[in-house]
Computed example of a mutant assay.
Amino acid sequence: MTGCVPCRSGPRGLRPVTGAEDRQVRDRLAELGLSVQGIDGALRRAESERNFCTPLDPVSLPGNIFWGRTIRFLRETYIPEGWTSASPSNVPLLVAPSGDFAIAASSGSSETGYAALTPSTRYPKGNAVMKRVEANRQLLLFGETEVEPEQQEAGNGIPTWFLLYHHLKTDQGTRLHAELSFPNDPGSRGKISSWYERIILPWIDFEGFTPFVDDADDQGGIDIPIERLP
């Protein structure tokens, strides 16, 4: 693997959190070939489709729709710019034009989007996702390594960023917090909670939209974590 190092300061130096009000957000995203507008547009479109749900739908449906549509709309936005899609081990990814890193999406805890707090993924992740986080950790510890393309499924063996998002109920409707963050440790309980770099995105207010704050989401039934009983 050559090319993009996930963080500009090098693999051993922890980067500060890039806050949503800082011009560095746009500059940092631009270095990755992304933009606030591109991600914002994908999230807004995903929320619009999620809002078609009603309380009569299965409780997991709004979250699954938002997660799935976020991935789809990110792909629709960036594939014309040379990005590609891949789903190694059923983990849907957006892969950079260089092939050097990928982006996954996941719901996050209530700390998502706050620079002063440390978020985690909302739910435990399965083995395929955690292997990607372990690959991030190996990169940070030992630097980039060459991977033979023919020995890897498309999208495997490369660093993975996570677009975390969290819905918060407000008096007017729903506020969506989001960040693009690079995990550096798979943890021990299945939830990703350690981040090497975090890029905090501006929040989005959806006035009058149904909150659906208690739904389940992302990869339910696809990548199920299994733990040995003590």
Rank of each mutant, 00 (worst) to 15 (best):
P55L: 02
N127E: 14
D22L: 15
D223S: 12
G13H: 14
T145C: 01
P58N: 05
L140W: 06
N184K: 04
L34T: 06
T77P: 01
Q172P: 01
R28W: 00
S9F: 15
T174A: 11
Y165D: 00
T121A: 00
A178V: 04
L201P: 09
I222K: 05
Q151D: 14
I158D: 01
W195M: 01
V5F: 14
D218R: 02
P225Q: 04
G108M: 12
T145H: 03
L139P: 02
I192T: 08
F162Y: 04
G19L: 08
P202H: 06
I204M: 12
W67Q: 07
T84M: 10
E227D: 06
A178P: 00
V133T: 03
F101R: 06
D223E: 11
D214P: 05
W161K: 02
T77V: 09
L201D: 05
D100F: 04
V17S: 11
A178R: 09
L139I: 02
E81V: 04
I65Q: 04
D100I: 06
G157H: 03
I65M: 05
G13L: 15
E21R: 15
R12Q: 15
D27M: 00
P92E: 05
L229K: 09
Q172C: 01
G108Q: 10
P186N: 05
V59T: 10
I200C: 01
D185V: 03
P183M: 05
D57W: 04
L61P: 00
P202R: 04
F182C: 02
N136M: 04
P97F: 06
E227T: 05
W161H: 04
H177S: 07
S60I: 09
L61R: 12
D214G: 14
T118W: 03
R26L: 03
A46H: 07
D27Q: 07
N136A: 03
E49K: 11
D205V: 06
G113P: 05
N90H: 04
Y114K: 10
N136D: 04
I226L: 10
P149W: 07
R45A: 14
S89Q: 10
V129R: 02
I71L: 13
R198A: 01
E111C: 12
A46D: 06
I39T: 08
V133P: 00
G220L: 14
I103L: 11
P211A: 08
R137L: 08
G33P: 07
H166A: 11
N90C: 02
P225N: 06
V133E: 03
G220P: 03
F162A: 00
G155D: 11
G3D: 15
C7V: 15
Q219P: 00
L180T: 03
T84V: 11
E81R: 13
P202E: 02
L93W: 05
F73W: 09
L61N: 03
S85N: 06
